[in-house]
């Protein structure tokens, strides 16, 4: 049976893993390669590394970080942040990533989705969507870019459908309303996107307890869920989380 995936996310800035609340208030959480290995050993199904302040000058640091993290990582490994072209993606794949996550660049130029897919396969392209509910809630939820600083005017479900049509392999949906609050995922928003598209949807933003994961896999119809801070500070690890999810009737990869 296909299991629900638990994905450990490393937000990286200047070569270090950091964690913020609603995209600000950054604190240091450690070395990316070391944390990637620790998470994989603790039962995470996948690792995502997001370079949240990616700059042109910082590319070398990022690629070196990816190389170090990927060296002995034998679970799927996604890298995102500042990937603006098929060449940028190729460099990240060459350093050892299995998938790339693209966000602002895909909105600026949606053809990029298909261009990366043509060389590396659709399964290697994750379109990340940062979303915030509008005045009418989920219905007019809007896509944001530039680390959540800039509204695009795009509706979340419509953009997810376009990303799928252009060849995205998965959608990584982050709710800016719930991100970093540890109060639960935005299940309604996740369900709206997951019901609209055929491709898998990864829910992100708001993980605080095993119950939150069970909710987003059930009511939220998510195929995978991503979390960062609850793992970094030893609140729980994937194995413990999965044990609780299994008790709650969610199918997960155990033993792992």
């Amino acid at each position: 049976m296909l299991t629900k995936r638990i994905i450990a996310c490393l937000d990286v800035r200047g070569g270090r893993v950091v964690k913020g609340v609603q995209f600000v208030d950054i604190v240091d959480a450690g070395d990316p390669a070391e944390l990637a290995h620790r998470h994989a050993a603790a039962g995470a199904d996948e690792i995502v590394l997001l370079d949240i302040t990616a700059t042109h000058e910082g590319r070398g640091t990022l690629l070196e970080t990816v190389r170090r993290a990927a060296a002995k990582l034998f679970v799927p490994f996604t890298v995102g942040g500042g990937i603006g072209s098929a060449e940028d993606a190729a460099a990240v794949f060459d350093a050892g990533a299995d998938k790339v996550s693209i966000n602002s660049a895909a909105i600026a130029r949606p053809e990029l989705i298909g261009e990366i897919g043509a060389s590396f396969g659709a399964q290697a392209v994750i379109v990340a969507i940062d979303a915030r509910r509008g005045a009418r809630g989920v219905e007019d939820a809007e896509v944001y870019v530039s680390g959540g600083r800039k509204a695009t005017g795009l509706r979340v479900v419509e953009w997810a459908l376009e990303a799928e049509a252009r060849g995205a392999g998965e959608i990584l949906l982050t709710s800016m309303d719930t991100d970093g609050m540890r109060g639960g995922f935005d299940c309604e928003l996740t369900a709206a996107v997951s019901s609209a598209v055929q491709i898998p949807v990864i829910a992100s933003g708001g993980a605080g307890s095993a119950e939150h994961f069970a909710e987003v896999f059930g009511r939220g119809k998510a195929d995978a869920a991503l979390a960062a801070s609850i793992f970094h500070f030893g609140v729980t690890d994937s194995r413990e989380l999965k044990g609780r999810l299994q008790q709650a009737g969610v199918s997960v990869r155990l033993p792992c």
Binding site: M1, L2, T3, K4, R5, D45, A122, Q123, G169, E170, Q198, I199, P200, D223, A224, R253
Partner: peptide, 12 residues
């Protein structure tokens, strides 16, 4: 019921 495709993830 709808079957999502691609089949992505850990299966037994």
């Amino acid at each position: 019921v709808e079957l999502k495709s691609p089949h992505v993830g850990w299966n037994s």
